[in-house]
Nucleic acid binder design. Structure first.
Lengths: 146, 146
DNA sequence: ATTAATAGTTACTTCCATGTGACTAAGTGA
DNA sequence: TCACTTAGTCACATGGAAGTAACTATTAAT
């Protein structure tokens, strides 16, 4: 089910991108990739999704503990927006003190799988990125000095 | 080469995440997924990468035209950071007026392939997200009214 | 002498995502 | 009566990413 582009037989990423950006295929500004990245590009959403990725329902405070550094407010904000988009389910139990549990929806889990594949790239190229960065900074420093 | 987790035979995403987050496997805070998303999560990087994904070298002003809404400054900033991380190459021609061309590096192209797969998810679930969002807002509106 | 072209840089401003700390409801147990 | 618990909300403060507009070098063409 990897049929992003089925308008033509596009086999290389170049062909795919070219086909994709063709105004005949989509309205201008249509960019699902950007949509996803915007959705998970904030500070906490991805971490919430990852922590719910264990497959167990987690209570609010469990998440707060597991997601290091997150504030109460930001956890609420993050979970609300994930819930709104249908990526997590929220279960409220009528108890005192309150109990609220969160879990990934199937849609959220599918996203996690996709996002997870990015990790392959990150791991494979992490060293190379750091190298490139160091080399670049070294050059920049030289220029500034002279 | 999809061997993110080879410590165990982890077949479900739950197992993968569990294995991944095990402090025995990685130092705390190690999260390559977050790294990538941070890298492309800014406003323009992804759009620059996508536009360079055609496989053709593009001049500064070509990019500026193609990336709708980007300012001169932000294009420079974006390209510089991509160059620094080794995702794009920059070719300067000693001409007047200046000519500078940009292209994806192989590493950048590999990233594009991965990121592209997110589009599959986005396209598949776009309608469902919008539905979920509308339903959520409708409920929220009711609560406010009462 | 002036304009035009390209690929920037620089100084300044603005705004929104995020952070902080106090506050709340509702019941339980001491 | 008071403290304690959980899962929040609310008002306000802040930093940094992004935006804006003016300025630059260099040469060719008019």
């Amino acid at each position: 089910m990897e049929v992003t582009i089925n308008e033509t037989q596009a086999n290389t990423i170049q062909e795919k991108v070219k086909t994709f950006f063709d105004p005949n295929n989509h309205p201008a500004g249509f960019c699902p990739v950007k949509d996803v990245v915007d959705r998970i590009g904030d500070k906490w959403s991805l971490l919430a999704i990852l922590n719910l990725g264990y497959g167990e329902r987690l209570r609010f405070n469990q998440l707060k503990t597991q997601i290091e550094g997150i504030s109460q407010r930001m956890l609420t904000v993050t979970l609300r927006s994930l819930e709104r988009d249908g990526l997590v389910n929220r279960y409220v139990y009528a108890e005192v003190p309150p109990r609220v549990e969160y879990e990934l929806t199937p849609m959220g889990e599918k996203l996690l799988v996709k996002v997870w594949e990015l990790a392959d790239w990150a791991i494979e190229y992490k060293a190379q990125i750091l190298e490139s960065r160091a080399a670049y900074d070294k050059k920049a420093a030289k220029k500034t000095r002279s």
